Simulated scan of single mutants.
Amino acid sequence: MSTSVKKGNCGPRVPVDDAGESRAADGAGQPPPAAPRRRRPAEPAGNPRRSRTLWLVFLVAAAAIGWSLHGTGVDVASLAAGWEGAREIAVGLFPPDMDGDLLRSVGDAVIETLQISLAALFFGTVMGLLLAVLMAGNIGAPAWLASSARLIATVFRSVPELLWALVFVAMIGLGPAAGVYAISLHAAGLLAKLVSEQLEAVDPAPVEAMRLTGASRKATGVLAVIPQARNNIASLVLYQWECNIRSSAIVGFVGAGGIGQSLGISMRLFRYQELATLMIALLLLVIGVDQISRLLRRRMGAATR
C-alpha cells in the first residue's frame, strides 16, 4: 500500500494511505508540533503608580519640613540677629583657664562623670537585656509578659534623662547617685528596644532547627538566637556607654553630679574661660571612650579603622 502526503488548508502535513486514512501518531508517525509560546508583553520602563507614590511622599515631606520651619521660627535672619552674642561668647572662651586648682577640680569632675557612666551602663544593660529577651518575638515569652516588658521599656525611654534626674534628686537629694539612676532607666528602655530588634533580625533557620529537635524556649534563645546577635548587642552596649557620658553632662545641670554640674555653675556665673576648660575635658573624655569602644569592637571582629 502506498502512502502520500495530503496538504490541508491549515495545520501540519499528515501522512495518509491510498484510502485517504491518516496514520495514527503512535510511534510510526510524528506527533504534531507544539503550539508556539505567546510572547509576554514588554514591561514599561517606569511604573507610573510607583512614581506617583514617590512624588506624593516627597511633597508631604517637603510640606512637613516647611510647616516645622515656619512654626519654630528658624530662618537666616534669626541667626544673623544672634551673631553678636555668639561672637562675645566665643571670644570669652579663649584662652581656656589652666589654673592648677581648676584643673584638679576638673579632673575630679571627669572621674565622677566616668563613674556615673559606667555604673549607669551596668544597671541599664542588665535591665535592658532582660526586657529585650522578654520582648523579642522569636524567644517565645508568654504574651502577657512580653507586653508588660514592652510597656515598661516604652515608659523608661519616653521620659528624658533630665526629667528622671529631677525625680531622683527630689527623692534622694543632690549627688551622682541621682544621675546614675536617671541615666540607667533611660538606657534600659533604649537598649531593650534596640536589642530586641537585633534578636528578632537573626537568621531563623538555626532557630527553627533547634525547635524541631525538641529544644526548650530557653535553650533555643541561649544557643540559637543570642549567639547570632551578640556582636551587634555588644556594639550597642558600647555606644550606650558613650551616650551615658553625654547624658551625665546634661543631668549635672540639675545637681546630679559629674562634669555637668560644673558646667552649669560656670555658665550661670559667666566664667567662659573656665567653661572652655570644662568643655575641652568633656571632649577628651568622649574621644577616649570612643577609641576604647572601637578597640573592643575590633577585638570582636568588626572592620574598623
Rank of each mutant, 00 (worst) to 15 (best):
A177I: 11
I226T: 07
R217H: 14
L190F: 12
S184R: 08
M267A: 10
V180E: 00
L278T: 02
V110R: 00
S235L: 07
F253T: 15
D290W: 01
V286Q: 01
N244V: 04
L212K: 03
E84Q: 13
A45Q: 09
E161L: 00
M279W: 09
R104G: 07
G258P: 07
V106T: 14
I89N: 02
T3W: 14
A303G: 07
Y181G: 07
G301H: 08
W164P: 03
A77T: 15
A45M: 07
A81D: 10
L194C: 01
D18V: 12
A109T: 02
L296Y: 10
G8L: 10
V195P: 01
I89T: 12
S148I: 13
A177E: 12
R37C: 05
I65K: 13
L174W: 10
R299P: 00
S22I: 08
T220N: 06
I116K: 00
V222R: 09
I280C: 06
I183P: 01
S184Q: 14
G8T: 05
A256F: 02
R246W: 05
R297K: 11
V14T: 10
V289P: 01
L236V: 09
L103Q: 09
V16P: 07
F94A: 14
G82I: 00
V169T: 05
D97H: 08
L79I: 13
D101C: 01
A136V: 03
A64W: 13
N244G: 02
F168L: 03
Q115D: 06
D17W: 11
G175C: 11
P206G: 06
V57S: 12
E242Q: 10
R217Q: 14
R299W: 12
L118G: 05
P44R: 07
V16L: 12
I111D: 04
I265P: 00
V286W: 01
A81Y: 06
L190G: 11
T53N: 15
L278A: 03
H70I: 14
S247M: 15
T53A: 14
M279H: 01
R40P: 04
A109R: 02
V225I: 11
G140I: 07
A77K: 15
A215N: 06
S2A: 09
I89A: 10
F94N: 09
L296M: 13
R37W: 02
E274H: 04
E84S: 13
V237H: 02
R230V: 12
Q273A: 11
W144V: 08
A182G: 00
A25T: 09
W83M: 08
L56A: 12
V60Q: 13
F94H: 13
V195A: 02
N47R: 08
V57M: 11
A119M: 09
Q198W: 03
L199C: 03
G260I: 09
S262Y: 11
R87C: 08
I111T: 12
V254K: 03
F168P: 00
L212D: 05
L69Y: 15
A136Y: 00
I139D: 00
A86P: 00
P204A: 03
A81K: 15
I245F: 06
E161G: 03
S196R: 02
A109K: 01
V254S: 04
A205F: 04
C243Q: 10
L190C: 10
I265C: 02
A187S: 13
Q228A: 06
E21I: 12
E161R: 01
G189M: 08
A187K: 03
L145P: 06
A63L: 15
